[in-house]
């Protein structure tokens, strides 16, 4: 610890100062190494290989410029997957945010047995996505799945993995189910930060519980909701990969999938490294654009107390 010199009492902040310029970099090195090796390097690799067509058997690659990009963007199947991904994101985000908020608002009012009730609701979050996918597949199974039986009761022959929209229903349900506890936890803690006296003041100002929720509680939850919106869109786009993998793998080719899953299929099953890389670069740009839009336009309308 010889290199460390604690700043004296003269400076009020507890700042650690180093007498050799190299020392702080040594401390930063492990973290930087992780970021560079596992994030920047593959990203750069992806960008580079998106300009090449790679021989499937590894005998070299050919520079093709933007061809991989134009191929992907003009491919009707790619366009259909993009449309489905957008649809899937909107539905999963809306449902899991909405149901999570509803459960949190109701759980916030439970006084007796609140602990076990909340634990039951949160526990789903502990399930890993592939396991959630497997459990979901059992529930939606063609032969023994209770959901298939339920749909059958209402006269619909549910064919998950075969019928495009039936698979959509299954994947959406499993994805929403998996994400609700996460939203629930955050909304619940968000609700508990609304001061009791503010709620009481509202109680005197407004008779209708719905109005109080809409005018007072919801705006105060906005920072939480904004954070969750970003997290949920990211979840729907990327983290549902494992669920799709379980539901769609080894099934006929007409099943719905997200852009991320298509990147994986084209790259690792189809051995089209260049095309797959181009798709992942497009995806990166979409995510960057989405983040900018969210922070520039949405955050302005969000009140941070």
């Amino acid at each position: 610890m010889r290199g460390l010199v604690k700043a004296g009492a003269a400076t009020p902040q507890k700042r650690v100062q180093f007498d050799r310029p190299l020392t702080p970099w040594l401390f930063l090195a492990p973290q930087l190494a992780v970021v560079v090796i596992f994030f920047y390097w593959p990203s750069v690799q992806a960008v580079v290989s998106s300009f090449y067509i790679e021989d499937p058997f590894g005998f070299g690659s050919t520079f093709v410029g933007m061809e991989n990009y134009t191929n992907a963007l003009t491919d009707t199947r790619y366009q259909a997957t993009a449309a489905f991904t957008a649809f899937f994101c909107v539905v999963v985000t809306a449902l899991s945010l909405g149901i999570g908020l509803l459960l949190a608002v109701k759980a916030d009012k439970v006084i007796r047995g609140a602990g076990p009730y909340k634990t039951v609701l949160i526990s789903v979050y502990a399930i890993a996505p592939p396991v959630a996918g497997l459990i979901g597949m059992m529930i939606f199974d063609q032969h023994i799945g209770p959901m298939t039986a339920l749909f059958g009761f209402f006269g619909r022959d549910l064919q998950v993995g075969v019928n495009y929209w039936d698979t959509t229903i299954a994947v959406t349900t499993i994805s929403v189910w998996k994400q609700i506890p996460y939203n629930f936890i955050f909304f619940l803690s968000g609700l508990q930060t609304v001061p009791v006296s503010v709620r009481e003041a509202a109680l005197i100002d407004a008779r209708s519980g719905w109005r109080r929720f809409r005018d007072i509680v919801l705006p105060l939850l906005a920072p939480t909701a904004f954070f969750l919106l970003i997290i949920n869109i990211t979840y729907a786009m990327f983290d549902t990969f494992a669920i799709f993998d379980v539901v769609v793998k080894d099934k006929p080719a007409n099943n719905p999938m997200t852009l991320v899953y298509k990147v994986y299929l084209d790259g690792f099953k189809g051995n089209d490294i260049g095309g797959s890389s181009a798709q992942s670069v497009i995806l990166m740009l979409v995510v960057a654009a989405l983040t900018v839009v969210q922070f520039r336009f949405l955050e302005r309308r969000v009140h941070y107390g």
Partner: peptide, 16 residues
């Protein structure tokens, strides 16, 4: 809300 009273709270309880 139906009691026709108004209350001033210790920590003001303004809507932030």
């Amino acid at each position: 809300a139906d009691r026709d009273i108004a209350m001033v709270f210790q920590n003001y309880a303004l809507y932030p």
